[in-house]
Design a protein around this nucleic acid. Structure first.
Lengths: 348, 348
DNA sequence: GTGAGTTGTCAAAGCGCTTTGGAATTTGCA
DNA sequence: TGCAAATTCCAAAGCGCTTTGACAACTCAC
């Protein structure tokens, strides 16, 4: 069933039917009713490709998903996408996901942009001086960045959380509890959020004249395995840290295993604060020692990003170009007063 | 830059340029070279919507993603999608993801199918007597089902793992170890895999004249929280089970927490086997007591599904209609001989 | 040097939709 | 009743691409 057939069925012109469907004013209400009724009965749906070709609008948001054999998928991806979708479904928007070799993200982004398949682009996992930014800016297509790119002029539309502030505040809390030996379990070194989180910790420590030795910083992907590995490494040091900042609850999972295996008590011998993206399958409050966290819902960010992007495409909203969300610091049992310094609590 | 402009630039007709680009034989090699060169220089890319309109092919696979406020995202989704993408990127295919209200998955699927935006459909999270099956069969579009639909005639193309066999084998192992009191932590009750896994356990127990009481079966979404909750529930029973079958490593995470908090030892007081979808962020071998698992890579399934679907669209492959993958049973430390029955190991 | 067979190219017809410009019909008011 | 304005509808022109059917131009015998 296409427009032509439908209009013949109704004894109307294609124009009239099209207008009736798209809410143009110059069509009789009774006629419109008849058309709508026929649509219901026949199950007619306009061909999107044709609509796209004629209007230049596709009703879709494009994003690039890096993938390759051996390339780790990201636990957070599904949750974020669910948030995007939650909003998109209200506007009958969909997503076009272009898988891409991690080495060719730029190329994939460009191809996606000029394919004519999408109205807007979304990018995430920003890096310092991210090369995708100039590309996006040169394209004449709406886009929105999740996160920021450290070192680039912040004149692009983004939504980010205050990573630096979050980790600054978390560090402050631990300092107040008397901790002096800190460690940071961070995400991949080149990623923007990792850079900023580290800055937050360093800034807080600096205020007390403390520093964060390189041996007390780990960078890795967000898996429980890496968390365990990093924590074991920290604990093997001659003077192990007592305060741990952790970029993800998934990392924390492994870290806590290492703490337990070393015979240490979380919240007593070791304090830990993790960043919580509010993943539904891993709640920090349910950890055997409930986790103190800096919290910001990834899903909520997804909703908001879809909102802004769709709004821009539909031209119906003046959204702020830049948004920086504060995180919440939720204190639970994994943080406690620093153990007395002279106390020996033997590593591994 | 479009075809017309490009052909004018080259002093050729659109036909010739189009043919040169699409590898038709009736074009001079030198001309083809010239065209390819021009494409490189101008960065010309064909408009996908126009291509789609003209050919009826979109180079994309469609899938519906249920989402709503409060609707849990699935940890496994990202990993699976990564697998799909891994194959898709090799064929320059992309995905169209249509978010849908969980109550309107059928409607969304239909709209996606007739939108003209996709060449093939993929569905997952199959339920018993799944109503999407008749819809798919009535559509004239290639599709592939991940999983099966219990109770429906298995005459549709699917890829599934042998859930029943996996849980049968796992139960057998536990029986051999002397266990007699079993419990099953399963996924949502209406899902096909949950139905089959339960059948596997029940069948194995039946051979020994044992049964699986309703009080020893839990159905829930795959979160650590639900896992902990279910296990606590099991342990409160007068004669708690000593052998646990678990549908996901994520559930196992919570379950193990409950075991520890009850002061029990995994692999001694309680044996546990979980199904492992091979999630990169949660490895069963790294659990403090490494987990015995039934293993089947979700990602590999994604790769294979994309392969079959793309093959069907390109009409270049005769793939088997139905595939049933065996799982591996990997024995680690979370399973051990049943504790002596007279031994008291006090609940909670 | 003519006819058949190849090769390389082109003009034009769609694909299904939106939108423009104008025509036909109805309405309002003098 | 007459005429302008408002309403309702239509034919046709794209949107950018693929593909069909034809046509030159060129080869190669005979």
């Amino acid at each position: 069933m296409n427009l032509k057939q439908l209009s013949e069925l109704l004894g109307l012109s294609q124009t009239t039917v099209s207008r009736a469907l798209n809410g143009y004013p110059e069509v009789n209400e009774a006629t419109r009713e008849r058309v709508l009724q026929a649509v219901k009965e026949t199950g007619y749906r306009p061909n999107k490709a044709a609509q796209r070709l004629a209007t230049g609008k596709a009703g879709s948001i494009g994003l690039v998903m890096p993938t390759a054999p051996g390339h780790y998928s990201d636990v957070h991806f599904g949750e974020f996408l669910t948030g995007l979708g939650e909003e998109a479904v209200r506007h009958d928007f969909h997503f076009v996901i272009m898988p891409a070799d991690p080495d060719d993200e730029i190329g994939a982004l460009r191809r996606l942009a000029i394919s004519g398949n999408v109205d807007a682009l979304f990018v995430a996992y920003m890096r310092g001086h991210d090369p995708r930014l100039p590309l996006l800016q040169s394209l004449s297509m709406p886009y929105l960045v999740h996160g920021r790119s450290y070192g680039s002029e912040p004149d692009y539309p983004y939504l980010d959380i205050d990573n630096e502030g979050a980790f600054y505040d978390a560090s402050k809390l631990l300092l107040q509890l008397g901790h002096t030996r800190f460690a940071l379990m961070n995400g991949p070194e080149h990623l923007d959020f990792a850079i900023r989180r580290k800055r937050g910790v360093v800034a807080a420590l600096a205020e007390r004249g403390l520093d964060l030795p390189d041996t007390c910083v780990s960078h890795s992907s967000m898996t429980d395995e890496q968390g365990q590995f990093a924590m074991e490494h920290f604990l093997q040091q001659p003077e192990p840290p007592t305060a741990i900042l952790c970029s993800s609850t998934v990392l924390a999972l492994g870290a806590i295993r290492a703490v337990n295996q070393a015979g240490l008590k979380l919240g007593e011998d070791i304090s830990l604060i993790a960043h919580d993206d509010v993943l539904p399958h891993l709640k920090p409050e349910n950890f055997s020692v409930p986790l103190t966290t800096t919290r910001s819902s990834l899903r909520a960010a997804g909703v908001r990003i879809a909102q802004r992007l769709i709004g821009t495409v539909k031209q119906d909203g003046a959204y702020p170009e830049q948004e920086l969300w504060k995180t919440e610091l939720i204190v639970r049992a994994s943080t406690g007063a620093a153990p007395r310094l002279d106390q020996n609590f033997g590593g591994v």
